[in-house]
Design a protein around this nucleic acid. Sequence first.
DNA 1: TCTATATGTTTCAACTTCGAAGCAAGTGAG
DNA 2: CTCACTTGCTTCGAAGTTGAAACATATAGA
Lengths: 175, 175
Amino acid sequence: MTGPDPADTGGVQALDPQELGAYFALMESVSLLHHHVEQHLRTEGNLSYVQFQLLARLAGSDGQLTMTQLADGVVYSRSGLTYQAGLLEKAGLITRGPSSDDERATLVTITDNGRALVDRVLPGHVQDVRRLLFDPLSDDDLQHLGDIMTRVRDHMRAQPPRSAAPRKRRPSPNS
Amino acid sequence: MTGPDPADTGGVQALDPQELGAYFALMESVSLLHHHVEQHLRTEGNLSYVQFQLLARLAGSDGQLTMTQLADGVVYSRSGLTYQAGLLEKAGLITRGPSSDDERATLVTITDNGRALVDRVLPGHVQDVRRLLFDPLSDDDLQHLGDIMTRVRDHMRAQPPRSAAPRKRRPSPNS
DNA sequence: TCTATATGTTTCAACTTCGAAGCAAGTGAG
DNA sequence: CTCACTTGCTTCGAAGTTGAAACATATAGA
């Protein structure tokens, strides 16, 4: 009498202990890192992690991006971005204006204040990441981690997008 | 005339390109994975990732945990857990009752329906993780990833906790 | 050109998350 | 025992996040 094997998930190859361990450790580490970093950003610059990401991304990119480019870069919903952009604009950290290329697009531009704020919080942020993430890693580990995660990211990006889930599928024509 | 070096962050050693790449790839990969997995769980079992984590954690652990144990395991605020537990209880997936050990504690127990649901969505979940995370990795990569992230997690856990930030520090006696 | 559809963004309502405050039960010192 | 403090959880209000719907502009095809 062989009761249901806990590792038997109905024909799908279950994750072996090594995979499980890697998966859990990965998710939890990032979650912890996110929490820590968020706290620091909040106390040092009154910014959420998302807001920091948006500003940092703009500070690169020559200071200008469309809403969609920003949302995609941060893996974020478009409506959520509209909200955050509103806050950042009210705080004087960014500016929103029409694009000359495409009348529909909103061009987001980082202001001098925005850049200054990024410059102000970046050192602490870097220190955090260094302390939390890189301290326990050797140069070799770092090399591997970067290589592995880059491959994983590219692989996932190749999958269908998600920030703007493909528009409502056109109602199938056979109705 | 040495203008401000972009890598000069005010005395703090900036992250070199390799570190930056690893950091960004890590955060984005997990973010993407989270999004994908969340979608699948929602369509297959009408569960959020958090809810799935809670049920899965309970399904291990002999089916019973206190609220605090659950919150700590999932890196979640206590009040948020109360909310989710309410939903899961309403859905008949868990049960809440007093603990005999400690009258204050609430003992959360997974129901048969809860177990059944976990069993139902787990294969798909595993398939997702396998497809998104492990597919592009060699056995060697997997080994490294698990090793690295385990070390990182343990390192972070050694830092002060976060699920229940230390209670309001008792007002220092010299006031 | 006219029309259908695609794309960029915002609005809106529902849901989720968080922290602070509140309540109840445990614990230790006197 | 009693007081002060700790710990486990919930309640409450404010803020953040999301998907669907609404708009507006673009684009392609007839």
